[in-house]
Every structure is written in structure tokens, then in C-alpha cells.
Amino acid sequence: MKVRFTVNGHAATVEGDAEMRLLDALRDVLHLTGTKEGCGEGECGACTVLLDGLPVNSCLVLAAQAEGREVLTIEGLADGPRLHPIQQAFVDAGAVQCGFCTPGFVMSTYALLRDHPAPSEEEILTALEGNLCRCTGYVRIVDAVKRAAVQLAETRLGEARARARETA
């Protein structure tokens, strides 16, 4: 069967059998291998992508269920060679060790900070509850989310100031 959806702003068509998961479509057909398969049963969150803006485990979504919808993967965040502020915050905070879980954590963080630009510790822990990391112990990951929130707030403030100057 043929499935059409949008990936990182671009139209995509994939062909496969009904069992094909969104994860398989992304990795094996579209070669977007930033999304990782950890457990394959919705426990670890390594395969987290945003489906119409919401974090989902792409191992628990059939490709067919993405028909006509928008998918955002880790590859859709960076601006050319420039990392997204969330990605940069994970680097700066030392929140990456083996790195396998990182794309999933970054995608969960992306959805969190879009909805809650200044999250509490509790909100951060809830947003990341479906993502497992076996290296870091989470302290630096939570730190990275806080840094990213500050960075994104500063970017927005800078943009607002620039707009104010333009209108003045």
C-alpha cells in the first residue's frame, strides 16, 4: 500500500505492507535514521517523533495511520549546520553520553517547550517520563531542558526587540 504524509515540511510517499510502522517508513524507506528503535514496544521513547505536533512512539504507529498527517523528526530541527537551541543545550549540558536516546529526548523536549516555555521541574519530569536513558541518570538531561528554555526565551526576546526597532 501507498502512504502519503508530510515529513519535516516535505511531502513523502512510502510504499510497504500494512504491518509497516511509521518508524520503519522513516528509517528504512526515507532513510531518516536519526529516529532510533530501542525496545520496539513503547517503553523507551527512543523512537519518539511528533505526529501532528504530539509526541508519539513511532514504533506503535502504523505508517498507514500517518496518512495525510504531519511528522516531525529530529532531522527537522536543525537549521542547516546550525543545531536547534534544544540540541545545542543537550551538547552544552553534557546531557548526551551514548546518544541513542537523545533524539527521542530532544523531540519530547521540543513539544514541552512549545506548550510550556518556562516549565517547572515537575512539568519537565512528566514530559520526559516516556523516555529512558541508561547512561546519564537524567540530571544533565533535565539541566539541558532548563538551559534550552532560557535560550529559547532569549531568542524570542531578541526577535521581539528587533521587531520593535523596525517599527520605531
Binding site: 513503547g42 521513547g45 519518539t48 505526529l51 504530539l54 509526541p55 508519539v56 512512539n57 506503535l60 504507529v61 519530547s108 513539544a111 512528566t126 514530559a127 517520563e129 516516556g130
Partner: peptide, 9 residues
């Protein structure tokens, strides 16, 4: 129940 990803589905 579950986690964010599970509750979204």
C-alpha cells in the same frame, strides 16, 4: 497512565 507518548495514542 502510560506516559505522554502513550496517552497521545
Amino acid at each position: 497512565l502510560g506516559c505522554v507518548q502513550i496517552r497521545n495514542r
